[in-house]
Each structure stands twice: as structure tokens, then as C-alpha cells.
């Protein structure tokens, strides 16, 4: 019999209680320098432990971001370790996602012939956690070497048959779709095998909304910036239809313009939650509204679910949104963006 994970659920809710509030974002966006923002985070937020030994007066923006990223992952690990959740496969959902993220990043930089840049952006805290050697991944100078590094991982079989072009360029979009599809399938199968009842429904609901949002955002971008047609989108989007359903999704892909795409979206369950979607919505604002939607769903799941997996999955999403908010604000401070701009790009929970 599995032990109750109520203590973890309580702990997760307590962690969520310490999230950054509207006033914190207001204070952060009022700062004039990156060092001031770092000092605020150190003094007033749950990131204080992660920044405790740091001299914020000379901190580099990139270093601050890497520390915050590490704090995010440490939080996840801490919660998993608390009641030995990490022994159950589903709880590796974040590590697996990060492994895929690093793999895709490495492919991208390899294609651009800038592997030295990859090592700089690589999250060093994953060095000892990832299922493959990240340093060797960074050193790989072609696709063959890259495949060698991941030979003993499940990702090898996923992308081993992908062919590079004559210049050795790896088809990045194809890799991305295949790896993400693998990840989503793994997530769904693992959830189905480990959970049942309300918990499974809540988890699947979140996963489906997540795939829908990824597809909607990517399809819209493809349409807006590359004028992609329906066939291209059908081939390059994740093969999941979530809440949207196959017909609605194809209807979106069939739109002849980004404006029509948004008009079609208004008729979906997602569009109905977004006001003035078709009239005056910028693409960033539209994406932000979708994230808000997912946030409110995660928040609801976090509040009402008694299941540790549902709570942790929701929390990590909410904390990721928070982390992105901070990174966006810090970047905006660095590039002297206005306070109103900062307010327009963040999602307050």
C-alpha cells in the first residue's frame, strides 16, 4: 500500500503561498538596476536562500537568471525527496523535460555552429542529474557525435533515424516535434499507469491543455511570421488534440491569415475566456492570456487536489510562470524598458 502523500501536498501549498504577489512585481518593476532587483529578491522573496551568499551589487544578469533557474529546480527536487516521490517514475517529469530542453538547445547551437555559446547557457545543475553527459553533449561537433552521447537514453531511438542535410544541418523542428511528442506520450502513459480516478483526470486535463496551448501558440506564430499553410502545421504540430478536439484544431490550421486564426479561436473553449481576442490583441498579449488560462487551471488543481502528483505538477507550472516573469522584468530593467511594458508582459497569479 502506498503511503499518504498529504504532507507533501501541504508542503506544496505552503510553497505556493510564498509566491511573488502583485506588490512584489510592482516593487521589482520599479527598480532601476539589475542589482537593485536582485537585492529585492534576496531580501523579500522566497529566493532569499538561493541568493544569500551572493553580492548583489555586482551581480551579472545571466548569473542571476542561472541562480533563479537552479532555485526552481532545487525546489522541485526538495519536494520530490520529501516523501521519496522521486522513486516513482512520474515524478521525473521535470528532469525529463529539462533533458529534452538541453538536447534541443544543443542541436540548435550545433546547427548555428556556436557550441561555445551552448556551454555558457547550459544549466550546470543538470550535469549530475541528466541521464547523459552534458559536457560531452556540448563538445559534440556533429549529429553523429551527439547521438553517441545519448546512445543509452530513450531519446536515441526517437531521433536516430533523422537525416541531416548535405551541410550537416539537423532538422530542428522535426527533432523538436518528435522529442516533445515522446515526452507528452511518456507523461500520459506514466500518469495512466500510476494514477487513477480524479487525480488522473486532473493530470490529463492539465497535460491536454498544455499540448493545446503549445500547438495554438506555435501554429499562430508559424502563420504570422512564416505564413505556414495547413498541411505544414498538421505535420509539425504535436499530434494531440486535447480539449480543442481534432476538428477545431484543423479548423485553426486552415485559417488563411493570423487574423482569421484568432477569429476561429474565439469560437473555441480557449477563445471564450479571452476578451477582445480578434479585435485588438497583439501576439504577446494573446500568448499571455493563454498562459493566464493555464495558470488559473493549475491554481485550481493545486487548491482542490489532494494528490501529490497533481499538486506538484501544478506548482511547477506556476513557479515556472513566476520565474519567467522575474527573468522578463530583469531583462526589461537591463534594457531600460518602461514600467508599463513590464506590467504588460507578466502574468500575476
Amino acid at each position: 500500500m502506498k503511503a499518504s502523500k498529504n504532507a507533501t501536498v501541504a508542503k506544496i501549498r505552503a510553497v505556493y503561498g510564498k509566491r511573488l504577489k502583485e506588490n512584489d512585481y510592482y516593487e521589482l518593476s520599479s527598480k532601476k538596476k539589475v542589482s537593485e532587483a536582485a537585492e529585492y529578491l534576496k531580501r523579500n522573496t522566497h529566493y532569499s536562500a538561493a541568493l544569500s551568499n551572493i553580492d548583489t551589487s555586482v551581480i551579472h544578469r545571466g548569473f542571476l537568471e542561472s541562480l533563479l533557474n537552479k532555485a526552481y529546480y532545487d525546489q522541485y527536487e526538495k519536494l520530490c525527496r520529501f516523501q521519496h516521490l522521486n522513486e516513482e517514475p512520474f515524478y521525473n517529469f521535470l528532469l525529463k523535460r529539462f533533458e529534452i530542453r538541453e538536447l534541443l538547445k544543443a542541436i540548435l547551437y550545433l546547427n548555428n555552429d556556436s557550441k561555445d555559446v551552448y556551454i555558457e547557457s547550459m544549466h550546470a545543475y543538470l550535469l549530475k542529474k541528466a541521464g547523459f553527459d552534458l559536457i560531452e553533449l556540448a563538445k559534440a561537433s556533429d549529429f553523429k557525435q551527439l547521438l553517441n552521447v545519448i546512445r543509452h537514453t530513450p531519446y536515441y531511438n526517437i531521433i536516430k533515424n533523422i537525416e541531416t542535410d548535405k551541410n550537416g544541418t539537423i532538422p530542428y523542428t522535426k527533432c523538436e516535434v518528435m522529442l516533445r511528442t515522446y515526452y507528452m506520450k511518456w507523461l500520459i502513459q506514466t500518469a495512466k499507469s500510476e494514477f487513477g480516478g480524479k487525480s488522473l483526470t486532473a493530470l490529463l486535463d492539465q497535460i491536454h491543455v498544455q499540448t493545446d496551448i503549445i500547438n495554438i501558440i506555435n501554429a499562430y506564430r508559424m502563420k504570422k511570421y512564416f505564413n505556414a499553410d495547413a498541411q505544414f502545421l498538421k505535420e509539425n504540430m504535436l499530434p494531440f488534440y486535447g480539449r480543442l478536439g481534432r476538428d477545431k484544431q484543423y479548423e485553426l490550421f486552415d485559417s488563411v491569415s493570423p487574423e482569421e486564426f484568432l477569429r476561429t479561436l474565439t469560437k473555441t473553449s480557449y477563445g471564450r475566456h479571452m476578451e477582445n481576442l480578434a479585435e485588438n490583441m497583439e501576439s504577446e498579449q494573446f500568448e499571455r492570456e493563454l498562459v493566464k488560462l493555464k495558470c488559473s487551471m493549475a491554481r485550481r488543481a493545486l487548491m482542490f487536489s489532494e494528490n501529490a502528483a497533481v499538486s506538484l505538477y501544478s506548482l511547477m507550472y506556476l513557479l515556472e510562470v513566476e520565474l519567467n516573469n522575474i527573468i522578463n522584468i530583469v531583462e526589461s530593467i537591463r534594457y531600460n524598458k518602461s514600467k508599463s511594458y513590464m506590467e504588460s508582459i507578466i502574468v500575476v497569479q
Binding site: S66, I119, M122, A124, Y125, L127, I135, A138, K139
Partner: peptide, 9 residues
């Protein structure tokens, strides 16, 4: 220390 781990590259 995080960055030090990347030295072997």
C-alpha cells in the same frame, strides 16, 4: 561552483 563544473569543456 556551478561554473567550475563546466571547466572540463
Amino acid at each position: 561552483c556551478e561554473s567550475y563544473q563546466k571547466m572540463s569543456y
